[in-house]
Nucleic acid binder design. Structure first.
Length: 153
DNA sequence: GCCAACGTTGGC
DNA sequence: GCCAACGTTGGC
């Protein structure tokens, strides 16, 4: 089983939305490196759900990968903001996976707290300056170090 | 709202 | 294939 981190803007789709729906197709990823990570996901993998571009950037919950990667349907939908006119159905550029709600963290695990952890300061895409990757792998050690912060304070 | 950092595009 | 210009991300 692999572990991941998925960013989402809570104004677009929040952990509350995922909790309410139970499962969601994780669409709209339009970065090749992130796309490649989506494609290496397997059912049963776990993912930290992270709120970005908001007042309190934080890990807010955990999701479970429910499917293999499949072509992201929004790339073919001219009405979608994620429409990609250069992608062809016979050779899709972009992929999605289904993500199930697992649980919320007991409290938001703030980016500031994550950065303050020496174990997470180095070699973790989320805490690197200028990082824009919206799907990233998380090692078991990083996973534990982040969730250890759930009960701090 | 600002701005640094990044990925992508396109001219050459 | 290089690289400047541009648009976007995302923390603050």
């Amino acid at each position: 089983m692999s572990r991941w981190l998925l960013k989402t803007e809570p104004s677009e789709f929040s952990i509350e939305d995922l909790a309410a729906r139970g499962e969601e197709a994780w669409t709209g990823v339009r970065n090749y490196q992130a796309r490649n990570f989506l494609r290496s996901m397997r059912p049963g993998d776990l993912a930290l759900i992270y709120h970005s571009s908001c007042a309190r950037p934080a890990v807010v919950g955990i999701g479970r990968v429910q499917s293999e990667a499949f072509p992201d349907p929004t790339q073919f939908d001219p009405e979608s903001p994620y429409f990609d006119p250069r992608s062809r159905p016979e050779a899709p550029r972009w992929y999605a996976v289904n993500i199930a709600f697992e649980r919320r963290t007991e409290r938001p695990i703030a980016l500031a707290a994550i950065k303050a952890q020496p174990a997470l300061a180095a070699d973790f895409p989320l805490t690197r300056r200028g990082n824009r990757l919206s799907v990233m792998p998380v090692t078991e050690a990083q996973w534990r170090a982040i969730l250890a912060l759930e009960r701090v304070r």
